[in-house]
């Protein structure tokens, strides 16, 4: 098991090689990537910041719990910090297991837990030049389509 914060692109092939050995019949990979829109606003990139020491500690704790739950120590996670452009990988999680279900469950568990507990924040940069810290606890702004008047001919 290994958890790290990184400031360069994750090498997914290397992570797969690191997580796997010949006892594993399944490898599950989750990649989080930078999307071009958030709540209707065009996004040009995201800047990630962390409370580094605590974030690594929390990531390691998540891998420890995943190990217990899914009986696999074959799990590696890297979370990127700094500015990332569209499409870049912000988080890479690789879990391997003799069988597919637990490999997939482990990656799913890890990303869901990362979003809940790891002290990492993202500053979205928008196409209009503004920036905003993302707050997942804030209610999303739901943009309702305008009612369309029925045209009676």
């Amino acid at each position: 098991m290994r958890a790290a914060l990184v400031t360069r692109s994750s090498d997914v092939a290397a992570l797969i090689a690191e997580a796997t050995d010949h006892s594993c019949g399944a490898v599950s990979v989750f990649l989080g990537t930078v999307r071009n829109v958030h709540e209707g606003k065009a996004v040009t990139g995201i800047e990630y910041q962390a409370y580094d020491a605590m974030a690594v500690r929390e990531l390691q704790a998540i891998l420890g719990r995943a190990h217990e739950r899914f009986e696999t120590g074959h799990i590696v996670v890297e979370h990127r910090l700094g500015f990332l452009g569209l499409g870049e990988v912000s988080v890479a999680i690789v879990a391997a297991h003799p069988h597919r279900q637990r490999a997939m469950d482990a990656t799913r568990y890890a990303i869901e837990e990362i979003k809940k507990t790891v002290p990492i924040w993202k500053l979205e940069h928008y196409a209009d030049g503004t920036r905003e810290w993302v707050d997942p606890t804030r209610a999303s702004i739901v943009i309702e389509p305008s009612p369309v008047a029925e045209v009676v001919g």
Binding site: Y51, K115, P119, W121
Partner: peptide, 10 residues
């Protein structure tokens, strides 16, 4: 101590 804003990793 650290005051932790809502986390947004991933």
């Amino acid at each position: 101590i650290a005051l932790i804003p809502p986390v947004a990793g991933g």
